[in-house]
């Protein structure tokens, strides 16, 4: 059997898309039978796949310098990139912060917030926030998109099963949703 390596990463998102991925339930077995070989994922605690991969799935938007880095490595190591979920596809909920300047946000969260006792903006050993949150396609080329917040397991299954069979996926009707 012609197996295909699939890796997933989790950027600025809520992990809902990964949950939806797991929600394919017994159809995951189906996908494995079609040749899916799950390599790196948040579960393996590998931030990015360490080797050449066929399909790379990106959840979440790009909001920090580290995520920007990871997404670029994904593009280098994966033949096909799928942006999954509204955050990866459009930018999603994290883009709500794009209405404000980064400095305003730091002030509000770390200086003005009543719950923050030491009034200090963390700056070491932590990724830097980008000035604006971006959807994945503003950083790298994306081959397939599965919008939805989160996308239904049906939509994810449609895309993955078609790709594993070497066919062109198409999201239509209920499978295409922005919410």
């Amino acid at each position: 059997m012609n197996s295909k390596r699939v890796a997933t990463i989790w950027c600025e998102g809520c992990s809902g898309c990964h949950m939806s991925f797991l929600d394919m339930d017994e159809r995951l077995v189906d996908l494995i039978k079609k040749g899916m070989e799950l390599s790196a994922s948040p579960l393996t605690d590998l931030k990015v796949p360490p080797f050449e991969t066929d399909i790379g799935i990106i959840e979440g938007s790009v909001a920090t310098d580290t995520q920007e880095e990871e997404v670029k490595i994904m593009r280098e190591r994966c033949k096909i990139i799928i942006a999954i979920g509204d955050c990866a596809v459009f930018g999603g909920i994290p883009t709500m912060r794009n209405k404000f300047k980064l400095q305003e946000l730091y002030n509000r969260v770390y200086n003005e917030a009543e719950t923050n006792q030491n009034k200090e903006i963390p700056n070491e050993e932590i990724s830097k926030l980008l000035e604006k949150v971006k959807p994945v396609n503003e950083v790298i080329d994306v081959d397939y998109y599965i919008p939805g917040c989160p996308p239904t397991p049906d939509a994810i299954y449609e895309v993955l099963s078609k790709l594993l069979e070497g066919k062109e996926p198409e999201l239509k009707g209920k499978l295409l949703s922005y919410e």
Binding site: I93, Y145, I146, L171, L176
Partner: peptide, 24 residues
């Protein structure tokens, strides 16, 4: 950004997106 809009799922403009198959 439909997922945080009050009229999502009840929006003529959004329906056009679905009609033409806009996915990004």
């Amino acid at each position: 950004y439909c997922m945080y809009c009050a009229v999502t799922n009840d929006c003529e403009f959004q329906n056009l997106g679905y009609y033409v198959g806009l996915d990004h």
